[in-house]
Design a protein around this nucleic acid. Structure first.
Lengths: 210, 210
DNA sequence: TAATGTGAAAAGCTTCACAGCT
DNA sequence: AGCTGTGAAGCTTTTCACATTA
């Protein structure tokens, strides 16, 4: 099933998913759009519109069945595809991500790590084999890796993306480098800049309003 | 000056600021909206609209004076206020942030670190004094800290926010914990969830389109 | 009755097109 | 001539209001 879903909607779907998991653990059986909205800071009508994009899943007069809704959203978010991911940059941020609980998932797996540090290449980092970035094209092709996570300085980011694209297997990049990257043909680049987020918070603190 | 600025606009303003800093270092004197747009992947008209919110700052027929524009945006983003920040959770992610170049700024300073690890409390982490989270209210009040960065597990996040709010000085929180937090009265909470960002990327990779 | 699903209205954001400076 | 500033058009996302159904 291919369906056009707006960016803000995807973000909320992920949040619903996480919330439903929590509710399940608490033994909750049903939940209403109003309750979901209150817990997530959204309007009930927004919640209903999001959930109804994919067919009628709730029961009128009752609400949504927690487990059923969870499985439903999960199947929309994670298609039957297992992603192979490589992480470039085994510094503190890279290692933090490797150890991050929420990063263990059955949707994807981190298959390789790359770092310039000669103490790390040739060994394993957090149980994952570590290579020198020079061998990006070979290793990506060999392991058929489609996604890259970049936790390297801004100055090295573009070169790594261009080199990795040579493997021909690369489909997407999640970068934490505080710089704008030019995407090679056929590669989707998604950036998270932590210092930008902090600046945004400070801006809103000063100027009031959310 | 208080002005309502939309969220996407703030994000772009931060990007302009960073780009202009770069251009300044390269010795560039003037730049056009078209060039800025090309470098940041935005339409020229978008750039002009963003920049004109705060008065006429460009020169018609010429473009924008790099240094002047930089100072202008800077003054919008960071009012004459120096923020005092505390970081809670001196794990790998926390230490990564403390060592992060882009986190050194004259707009704010990290004044205290909190962690439950008895090996860390009472000493300094990356040169910053480390306390036990139990003393959050006292330390925040003493140092007049207004912003908290949370790099702790989801399970502890809400309790830390509630405790910190008791100091009465807290205005904002930037959290990396993958959970939804309830904001105490008068506190603005801004969350960055790394695993959500990865899920969003994977979703778009599967469903095509940006 | 209580809560969903949904067309239509409202709000928000981006792009266009061109007038207006330099 | 060249490039900004900006009202208006166009598109996207949110909210409303209510018919619908368990």
């Amino acid at each position: 099933m291919t369906m056009k879903v707006a960016e803000p909607t995807v973000e909320r779907l992920v949040q619903y998913c996480r919330l439903l998991e929590q509710l399940h653990d608490e033994g909750r059986r049903v939940v209403s759009s109003q309750e979901i909205g209150d817990m997530l800071g959204l309007k009930a009508s927004q919640v209903r519109k999001d959930l109804s994009y994919f067919g009628e899943i709730g029961k009128r007069g009752v609400g949504y069945h927690v487990d059923r809704l969870f499985e439903h959203i999960r199947s929309i978010l994670s298609p039957p595809h297992h992603w192979k991911i490589a992480l470039v940059g085994a510094g503190r941020l890279g290692e933090a991500l490797l150890g991050y609980k929420a990063f263990k998932s059955d949707k994807f797996n981190i298959e390789a790590v790359f770092d310039v540090d000669p103490d790390k290449t040739g060994t394993t980092v957090a149980g994952i084999p570590c290579y020198h970035p020079d061998s990006l094209p070979q290793v990506l092709k060999e392991k058929n890796i489609e996604v890259l996570i970049l936790t390297i300085p801004a100055s090295a980011a573009q070169a790594v993306v261009d080199l990795a694209a040579k493997a021909g297997t690369l489909k997407g990049v999640l970068t934490f480098a505080p710089t704008t990257l030019v995407a090679p043909e056929g590669v989707l680049i998604y950036g998270v800049d932590i210092s930008v987020e902090l600046e945004k918070l400070l801006f809103y603190l000063k100027h009031g309003e959310l």
